[in-house]
């Protein structure tokens, strides 16, 4: 399997993850989307030096990944190209922020190091939460939930079609790449001299296929917005569960659970 096929396989695996069955999968998507947004906002709201309080927020993804049956390592593996970017966000902080926050023996820990770790953790937590939402809901159900939240139809359609066209583009790249390598068996990649025509052809082929798909949509009455699969609406019990989880997330933001736990062990 070449790299493109592998990427396509991994991309489609997200749909298969969403087809699994667990409490998290069965939980209605609308409250799930709202909880994910709340969780991300709360995570992002922590102060840059508040690493200890933020660390408690790790418990949420750990718990819900366990409950959903999706291994956390799968998330980290799939996000392996994005995570380094997230990690890089705060990498310069130690060079600019020399404020000493605490001392561990003779070692001074500066604000730069703490804020770097906080930023990294925030990014990782936001990504793992988003991944869990997609992996337990599927893009179509998320789009349906977004429409129910009155997110403009054009934005939701754009999201759904982007998701659809990623596979169209990847399939075209895969076909072209296979055709290239079958006639250039000793080359590892695609020669620089062929990049221009390769990309040009890719663009033309993708546009042709995109046009075909769009025509297929028009031929079946598409006039600007999708009708999504009707999902059973969230019951009062679902909303109550969502509310409790939301309350717990907010509680962890305003009550320092980490220092409470620490005080149980250290006087």
């Amino acid at each position: 399997m070449n790299k493109i096929d592998q990427a396509l396989y991994e991309f489609r695996e997200m749909d298969e993850l969403a087809d699994q069955d667990s409490l998290v999968h069965r939980f209605p998507v609308l409250p799930k989307v709202l909880l994910t947004i709340l969780y991300i906002l709360i995570v992002l709201s922590f102060h840059k030096y508040d690493l200890s309080s933020l660390s408690v927020m790790i418990l949420f993804p750990v718990f819900f990944y366990q409950l959903s049956g999706i291994p956390l390592r799968k998330c980290f593996y799939k996000l392996r190209f994005v995570l380094p970017l997230v990690m890089a966000v705060g990498i310069l902080n130690p060079f600019f922020d020399h404020t000493v926050i605490m001392k561990i023996g003779p070692l001074s820990v500066t604000g730069g190091w703490i804020s770097m770790l906080t930023l990294m953790l925030k990014g990782i937590l936001a990504l793992t939460a988003s991944f869990l939402l997609v992996a337990t809901s599927g893009i179509a159900r998320i789009c349906a939930a977004l429409r129910r939240m009155h997110v403009p139809s054009v934005l939701v359609t754009l999201l759904l079609l982007t998701y659809r066209y990623i596979t169209v583009l990847s399939e075209e790249v895969s076909v072209m790449s296979n055709a290239y390598h079958l006639r250039a068996p000793r080359q590892k990649g695609i020669e620089y001299s062929a990049w221009g025509s390769f990309l040009g052809q890719l663009l033309l082929r993708s546009m042709d296929r995109a046009e075909e798909i769009y025509q297929a949509m028009l031929l079946r009455g598409f006039h600007g917005h999708f009708h999504y699969v009707d999902e059973k609406p969230a019951s009062p019990k679902d909303w109550l569960t969502g509310l409790l989880i939301g309350a717990l997330i907010v509680f962890c933001r305003y009550y320092n659970v980490a220092s409470f736990l620490g005080s149980l062990f250290v006087r």
Partner: peptide, 28 residues
């Protein structure tokens, strides 16, 4: 009018058969 395209991959643009099948009736 229904048009069955030569390339079924272009025709089936939704994630599942069911979602593809409800597409036209719901649009109409």
């Amino acid at each position: 009018l229904g048009y069955v395209l030569q390339d079924s991959d272009d025709q089936m643009f939704m994630p599942t058969v069911y979602e593809d099948m409800i597409f036209a009736p719901r649009n109409y």
